[in-house]
Amino acid sequence: MTPSRAVRRPPRGAVAWKFLVPLALFAVLVAFLGIGLTRDPKNLPSPLIDKPAPAFSLATLAAPERVMTPADMRGKVWLLNVWASWCAACRIEHPLMVELAKSGVVPIVGFNFKDDPQAARRWLGELGDPYVVSVTDRDGRVGIEYGVYGAPETFLVDRDGVIRFKQVGPITPEVLRDRILPLVRQLQG
């Protein structure tokens, strides 16, 4: 064997390492896809976090001649819970809302989204009414202002009327205990 050839041939260790490169790349790909699987594609970051809650002036469900606006809640930390009688997931979430309302920790404003007021009133009569007040957004215009794309959705609004947290989908006991209640206490404190 000529010396020039001996130099060209890489040492054994280097050859083995080279074959590991595709495997390593594959492992990285699997890791990324694996992380992707654990994330909920329905859960989108809201651009409204840390922005003032969009103003609205909507008729209340109990008394359509009365109007409620977010300004009415100034000075309070409150939840805006988007619900509808046609929304199956709202039914799942509802007992937790009732329980939270009973605890009196934080007032919940109901946002009745694209619903028939009569059906909505029946729904509350059947399952209990946890809301200090419910407003009706029949055509969904205000819902769009809030970036609502699937009920239930819940916004946590601070004393200055700024949205601090948003939950898309039903609030679970875990989310309530680990995210919402600590934040409520912090904002109230």
Partner: peptide
């Protein structure tokens, strides 16, 4: 649209 629903 992005002001309400984000870049998504």
């Amino acid at each position: 649209m992005t002001a309400r629903y984000g870049d998504f």
